[in-house]
Design a protein around this nucleic acid. Structure first.
Lengths: 200, 200, 200, 200
DNA sequence: TATGAATGAGTCTTCATTCAT
DNA sequence: AATGAATGAAGACTCATTCAT
C-alpha cells in the first residue's frame, strides 16, 4: 500500500498544493469543517478530487496545514508584527494599532475561531498548535515588557490577562452584537486597565 | 415531511422528551455536535430512534432545546444565582464565589462551549439564544451595580469587560494548560482589576 | 459512535439478514470478492445499501458469515453427511457416493474455492475457519476408520492424503479441462489407491 | 486509449520492462492482485507510473507477463527440471528431489497460488496458461514414464493423480498447519503410493 | 405512542489510467 | 523514452430521517 503523501517538487504542483490549502481553509473557516466536503474543496481549488489525496493524508490534514499556514494571521496576529521597535512609551498608540490589526485579521476568519478551537478537544495536532502558539505569544509579550523595564512579579499572569482582554475586546467589536455599546469607550477602558496593571 | 411535532401531554411522554434532551445535550457537549448521531442519543435516552422524530423536528432541534434547558447553567451561570441579597461590600468574596461557580459549571461542558458558540454563525436560533442571554446577563449585572450605587458613565462597557475578564479567567483555570501560571495570583489580579474599575 | 451491529429480532429482519448473506456469498462465489460491491449485494438481496451495514460490520463480514453458513456444503461436504451408518465394507460404494456428493456441491461454488482459500493468507478469520474445518474433517474420517477396525500407524497422514486425493479428483472432474482424460477410470484408480492404503 | 504498447528495443528499455514484470509479479504473489496497485509496482521497479502503461496494456497485463515469465518456477517446477537423464530406477530419490524442489519454489509464492488460479475463472488468458501448462506437465511425465517402459493403460489418469498427490503433499508441508502430522511419514506414504501405481 | 427496521443520498477515499512536459 | 502530476469514476461506509408494524 502506497500511502506516502507526495511532497510536490514541481513549481506548478507546489502552487496546486497551496491552492488546495487555501481553498480548503477558506471554506472551512467560512462554512465550518463538517459543512465542507472534499469535493467542494477540490472544486474551489480548481483541481480534481483525486489530487487532494496525493498531497494530504485526509481532510483533517488540509485543516492542519491551513492552520499552520494562516493560523497566525487569524488567531495570533500579534505574532505577525515586528515588535523590535516598539516603545512602551507610546503604549496607547501601540495598543490601538495592535487592536486594529487584530480586528482586521479576525474579520477574515468569520466562524473559524470557535469551531477550530473546539477541535482542540478532539484533535491533538490542533491542540498542540494552539498550546505552542499561546506560549509563544505570551513569551513574546513578556519579553517586550521586560525589555521595557517592567520586570515585576506576576508578569506572566498579567500578560495572560491582557491577552484575554484584548481578545475579548476585538471579539466584541467584530461581532458588534450589542447596539448600546460604545466601542470606542470600551477600547479606552481596556487600554487604561492594561496601563494600570503596570503602574507602580 | 412530518412537521407536526407532537408536544407531549402525558407525564410519561414529557419525561421521555426530557430524557432525549438531556441525553442529546450531554453527548453533544461531550463529543461535539457532528460526532454525535441520533442513534446514540436514542440509545443513551433509552428510547427508540423513531420516537425522537416525534418530539423533535430534527437533530438540530435537540441541541436547541438542550440549550434552552441547560444553557444557562453552562454558559451563563450567573443567571442561575440569586443576586437579590448581594452586597457589593463583599465584592471580593462574591466574585470569588461567582468564579468558583462558573468554573464548576464550565467543567461540565467540556468541549461544548466552542463548538456550540461556533454555531452562532450557522444557526440563527443559536445566535439569538446567545445574543439574548448576553444581553440579559449584562443588564442583570448593570442593575446590580446601579442598585449598589455605581451609576457611573460607561457602565455597560465596563460590565462587558468584566464578563470577558471572568470568562477568560475561568477558561484559563479550567484548561490549565500553562504550567508556569499561578492561578491564585491570576484570580487576585483579575478581582483587583474589576474593583479598580469602580474605584472613584 | 454507535458501531454495534444489530442482531435482528423480528422475523422479517432475520430473513432479510439471511438474504443478504446468501446474495453476498453467491455473488462473491460467482464473481469474486473484489469484483462484488456492496451495492450489488444489496440489490441482489433486494434491500438498501444502508441496511447491509446494520447487520454486518463490513463487506468482509458478509463473506465470513456466508462461509460459516454455506462453507461446509461447498468446501467440506463430508461434514454434511451422516456417517453413523457407514460400513467400511461398502468402501467402493461409499466413496463413489461421497465423491458424487462433493462434486455436486462443488459445482455450486464456481470460482469460490480458490479465491476464498486465497484469503487464508490475509484474513485470520478465514484462516481459522479452514484450519478448524480441516481438523474436524480429519478427525471425523479418522474416527470412522478406527471404528471400522483400521487402527494402524500413520492414520492421520493417510487421512490427509485421502482427502487430498478426493479433492483433487473432484476438482479435476468439475473443471473438466482435459479432454483426453477418462474420469471414470480416474475415479476407479483413486478409489483403489485409497483401498490399498488400508490393505494389510 | 493508447493501444500501441511499445515493445522495447533498446537494452535499457528491455531491462526496465523486465524490472516492472518482476516487481509486479512479486508484489502480486506476496500481497495479492487486488492488494497491489500500480503505484507500488512502479515504485518497487524504480520507474515512473507513466512508463508502466507504455509497456503494458493494463495492470492485468503485468500479471500475465509475470505468469509467463515466472509461472513455471512457481506453479510447475517440474517443467524447469532436465528430465533427460532421469532413470526411473531411482524413483524414490527422484521423487524426493522433485518434491523438495517444488516446496522450495512454492514457498516463494506465498499466497500467489490460490489467488492467481482463482483468476482462471475470470481471465481467459490466465485460464489458457494453466490449461496449457498442465497439459505440458502431463505430457512430459507421461513421456518420461513411457520412455522408461511404463506404457500401460490409463497412464494419463495416473499421471494426473500423481501430480495432485505431490501438489497436495507440498502444500501440506509448506503451510504446516497440522501439528500432529509427521511430514516425513506423509512423504514416504505418498512416494509409496506412486510407486505402487506402477507396480506390475 | 412506540419500535426498530429500512432507506438512500451523501461523504471520504482509492486507484487504474491518461496527460502535460 | 520518461516523468510524475492529474483525472474522475467507483467503492465502502455513515447517518439523518421515514416507514411498516
Amino acid at each position: 500500500m502506497v500511502d506516502n503523501i507526495r511532497e510536490p517538487k514541481q513549481q506548478r504542483a507546489i502552487e496546486k498544493k497551496d491552492k488546495i490549502i487555501e481553498a480548503g481553509f477558506n471554506l472551512i473557516c467560512k462554512n465550518g469543517y463538517y459543512n465542507t466536503n472534499t469535493a467542494e474543496i477540490a472544486k474551489e481549488a480548481d483541481v480534481s478530487t483525486g489530487i487532494v489525496y496525493q498531497y494530504f493524508k485526509d481532510k483533517n490534514d488540509i485543516l492542519l496545514e491551513g492552520l499552520y499556514k494562516f493560523g497566525d494571521n487569524i488567531f495570533f496576529p500579534i505574532l505577525t508584527l515586528d515588535l523590535s521597535n516598539y516603545d512602551i512609551k507610546n503604549f496607547d498608540n501601540d495598543l490601538t494599532n495592535l487592536i486594529a490589526s487584530q480586528i482586521k485579521n479576525h474579520k477574515l476568519s468569520q466562524r473559524a475561531h470557535e469551531e477550530i478551537t473546539a477541535m482542540i478537544h478532539t484533535d491533538s495536532n490542533v491542540a498542540k498548535y494552539f498550546y505552542d502558539k499561546e506560549f509563544e505569544v505570551t513569551e513574546r509579550i513578556k519579553n517586550l515588557l521586560v525589555k521595557n523595564g517592567y520586570e515585576e512579579e506576576q508578569l506572566l499572569e498579567k500578560v495572560h490577562i491582557i491577552i484575554g482582554l484584548i481578545d475579548n475586546l476585538c471579539h466584541e467589536i467584530i461581532y458588534h452584537k450589542h447596539k448600546d455599546i460604545n466601542y470606542d469607550a470600551m477600547t479606552n477602558i481596556t487600554i487604561n486597565m492594561i496601563k494600570n496593571l503596570f503602574k507602580k
